[in-house]
Design a protein around this nucleic acid. Structure first.
Length: 427
RNA sequence: GGAGAGAUGGCAGAGUGGUCGAAUGCGGCGGCCUCGAAAGCCGUUGUACCGCUUGUCGGUACCGGGGGUUCGAAUCCCUCUCUCUCCGCCA
């Protein structure tokens, strides 16, 4: 959520920043509501002050045994007026709040202008495209021949986009999750947490998925609980409505969860196999920082994600998203993309975002500054580190051999217990 | 699912319809003491909003959420949510 005071005092700038995302129209009517709100507060506060004064007078007059019925009558009249004013105020504040919840974050000054992925900037690239002296098979062909995935049966038991991992595929997938978690733990930056996979509305409002993107979520109607689309939601909300100590910042968590996404509206786009699924596994990194530290922590977090890819020997690039291509709550976002030899294209494997105070304001996550002694909103960040499906695509395609087998990267062998996947089993 | 208890400041925990933004303890901050620290002692310490004369300023609100009674509610009533204890069921 944006700070209404900032918008009030910097209307032109606010309009310019939202226009970078093509969302300046959302500001329409906001400030006149804000003005009406403040006028009402001023009026009702004055009436409440008068009522408090009358109450004191009544108390004193009653003690002296004086006449109090006129005072009571005036107080009652003012009370009625206050009730009316408060009712209008509440309606206006509800309206204002629901409008503010629909407005995306401002892009940071370092974010390039632009409306589509065309305007994103590649900021660095690591490794080279794998050189194969044969025509690479795609992950679907490899998965079928090696019998490590079963998309058809996943479709049967649930629906499309709910993959089944089979035999070596199941082990490989589980190994990746453990590898990611151990990777972060050994570097000592993140505290591992295991959190619920189902969350309430308040949590989703806190991180920005609600109220605007409800159709992207799976909902359990009976209890009004949602399956999480990312561990960002439960982990960021760990500190909702809390006042943190400055000395404990930055707080850095990582955690594994499955993720559930309806992917409404994205049918027909990258839907084959693992390219877009409704359920997948991911290890997420989440940070809570002081405002002045968040951009340095953002760079570090992005490096934490790419370091995993380097240890797996996978060709990747880091892309700085333009204002129009960023997610709703992000002020700045790097996408990390890995190369698919069979698809001959880059696949998004991670998004590392700095939300600044946007989520903190929604979720009321503050810390007490030691220099001022005053509470202030933290900055929140999160990034995938990493998600398994597209990683499996690139891993299999990159490490396939000309005889149809697939080698396991060295760092994963201690997790899988095998080094080669063949159609007749593992070795 | 049944019965009961509870929700108060950063945390713990008192609180009679009016002077309660709220005792006390812990924590935090400042000072004394000390070579320094601990201990001890003294003092201090809520948040949000509105306003302008931007101040150690004025006002309002806030004791889980919402509603009611009253001139006046942390305190009385209704309701919702959540937590805890016991019983039952399940693992």
């Amino acid at each position: 959520m944006l700070d209404i005071r900032f918008i009030r005092e910097n209307e032109t700038e606010a309009r310019r920043l939202l226009d970078m995302r093509g969302q300046a129209l959302l500001l329409g009517g906001l400030l006149s509501l804000d003005k009406r709100r403040r006028a009402l507060i001023e009026a009702t506060d004055a009436q409440k002050a008068r009522r408090n004064e009358l109450s004191r007078e009544i108390s004193e007059a009653a003690k002296r045994g004086g006449e109090i019925s006129d005072l009571k009558e005036e107080s009652r009249r003012i009370g009625d007026s206050i009730t009316a004013g408060d009712a209008e105020l509440k309606a206006i504040e509800n309206d204002l709040e629901s409008r503010l919840l629909q407005i995306p974050n401002f892009p940071h000054a370092s974010v390039p202008p632009g409306r589509t992925a065309e305007d994103n900037l590649v900021v660095r690239e690591w490794g080279i495209k794998p050189v194969l002296d044969f025509t690479p098979k795609d992950h679907l062909a490899l998965g079928k021949e090696l019998r490590i995935f079963d998309f058809e049966r996943g479709t049967k038991i649930t629906g499309s986009g709910f993959p089944v991992y089979h035999s070596a595929g199941a082990v490989l997938e589980r190994s990746l999750v453990n590898f990611f978690l151990d990777f972060h733990r050994e570097r000592g930056t993140y505290t591992e947490v295991t959190v619920p996979f189902v969350v309430n509305r308040k949590s989703l409002i806190g991180t920005g998925q609600l109220p605007k993107f409800e159709e992207d979520l799976y909902l359990s109607n009976t209890d009004d609980l949602f399956l999480i689309p990312t561990a960002e939601v439960p982990i960021t909300n760990l500190h909702r409505d809390e006042l943190l100590n400055e000395s404990e910042l930055p707080i850095c968590y990582c955690g594994y969860t499955p993720c559930f996404r309806r992917e409404a509206g994205s049918y027909g786009k990258d839907t084959r196999g693992f390219l877009r699924v409704h359920q997948f596994d991911k290890v997420e990194m989440v940070k809570f920082t002081r405002p002045e530290d968040s951009y340095a922590e953002h760079e570090k977090m992005t490096k934490d994600a790419t370091a995993i890819l380097e240890s797996l020997g996978l060709h990747y690039r880091v892309v700085l998203l333009c204002a129009g291509d960023m997610g709703f709550g992000a002020a700045k976002c790097y996408d990390i993309e890995i190369w698919s030899p069979a698809e001959q294209k880059w696949l998004e494997i991670s998004s590392c975002s700095n939300f600044e105070a946007y989520q903190a304001r929604r979720a009321n996550i503050r810390y007490r500054r030691s220099d001022t002694g005053k509470p202030e909103f933290v900055h929140t960040l999160n990034g995938s580190g990493l998600a398994t499906p597209r990683l499996l695509v690139c891993l299999l395609e990159t490490y396939q051999n000309d005889d149809g087998t697939v080698s396991v990267p060295d760092v994963l062998k201690k997790y899988t217990g095998f080094g080669l996947i063949t159609s007749s089993g593992v070795r």
